[in-house]
């Protein structure tokens, strides 16, 4: 399964990518929202994991754009603690799941499994 990870914090990006690779997924990474949007249309990932706060285009913009054109691609949103309103907005835009920081990579792995099993 091909997963796009959009996260601007390098260590978090590497950690998530390593965890998903360990689970046998193919992982594409980017550290900004604009590139993420390009990669979504060029690479057609099966699942997207995106942080909310990112340079050039936010996670919300990514969710909105993806759900407008490719409704079937599941999106998991990563948010900081206390961003309930943003998470609700992401769900309104069509996000499939969210995980708030601090989070356990194992938990993220489980959520990915659950979404891909659908």
């Amino acid at each position: 399964m091909k997963i796009l990870v959009a996260e601007d914090e390098p260590i978090m990006q590497k950690t998530i990518a390593l965890r998903l690779k360990k689970d046998g997924h193919e992982v594409i990474t980017t550290d900004n929202g604009r590139e993420a949007l390009t990669l979504i249309f060029e690479q057609s990932p099966d699942l997207i994991i995106t942080d909310i706060m990112m340079p050039y285009a936010s996670g919300l913009e990514i969710v909105g754009t993806v759900k407008q054109y490719e409704k079937k691609i599941p999106v998991i949103v990563l948010s900081a603690m206390g961003q309930e309103n943003v998470v609700l907005e992401a769900f309104n835009l069509g996000a499939d799941d969210f995980i708030s920081k601090p989070f356990s990579p194992n938990e993220l792995s489980m959520r990915v499994k659950r979404l891909t099993a659908r």
Binding site: E9, I11, T15, K101, P102, F103, S104, P105, N106, E107
Partner: peptide, 15 residues
């Protein structure tokens, strides 16, 4: 610095 920064975003066994 990098460890502390990462710890803020990670929980569970990984922390």
């Amino acid at each position: 610095n990098e460890l502390v920064k990462t710890k803020e975003n990670i929980s569970g066994q990984s922390a």
